[in-house]
Amino acid sequence: MPDSFSGKVAVIQFPGVNCEPETVRAARAAGLEAEIFRWNMSPRLLNEAAAVILPGGFSYQDRVRAGAVAAKDRIMDKLSDLAGKGKPVLGICNGAQVLVEAGFIPGLHWEKIDLALAPNVMSDREGYYCNWIYLRVEENNCVWTGEYQEGEIAPMPIAHAEGRFITRDENIIDDMHRNNQIVLRYCSEAGRLDSSFPVNPNGSIENAAGICNPEGNVLAMMPHPERASWLRQVPEDISGKWRAKRRGSCFRPEKMEDEGPGLGFFASIIKEISG
């Protein structure tokens, strides 16, 4: 483990997460310096980190509730401080659950729990769902989506049982709209919003797939961009502009290593952290 994270992206490894190596690889492929940061390392080391990513998996084996135990961890005290000061923080899948349980997202009242990532609600089935879906990037000021155009559609894999953004407080939804915080929404391959399964794969409010804080430096997203960072990871039967790219790479190994639709999330913060 490195003893300095100066200028690097720290990918937090809580006990039970399992996407940290591939997240580090994707961040490096985007041109970032990234290292795994064990949860029990000195939180002070995070001071010098350029950004922090909470990867997917099952922190603390999802005991009690997905993300709930990790959200209380000592390292989250430091992360709360740094995120409050503007450090870019990305939570992917279980990382998103941790950020929601920690009250960083939606972040309207810092550390207050205004949202939940509840069990999926789907027609005629329940529980875990794993598939490729389509995301629409909405107008926003989030530092993690700068590489995408407003309205751009990106295919991305999801794999979760508890990914339904929900709140009991209708005012929270209004506030999130007002602040353009719902930055990623589940949509059809043509970009149409539809609240029913499978376009909205988990019953999330407002088709939300990713929500940032009002300042735009913290993003919680359920899809896995690290699993869509190379063209070789994209299914051949995907629709839209990525279909042609993916099919064009068949039997051309060198093209298979080209950028995939998820790499932009990692590339987006290069300008932010170098500026």
Binding site: V64, A68, G103, I113, L115, A116, A118, R168
Partner: peptide, 16 residues
């Protein structure tokens, strides 16, 4: 009841 990060743990009131 989990009302804040330093608050409770056993349930999230937004879906439980």
């Amino acid at each position: 009841v989990t009302r804040s990060r330093r608050g409770g743990l056993l349930l999230n009131p937004h879906y439980q």
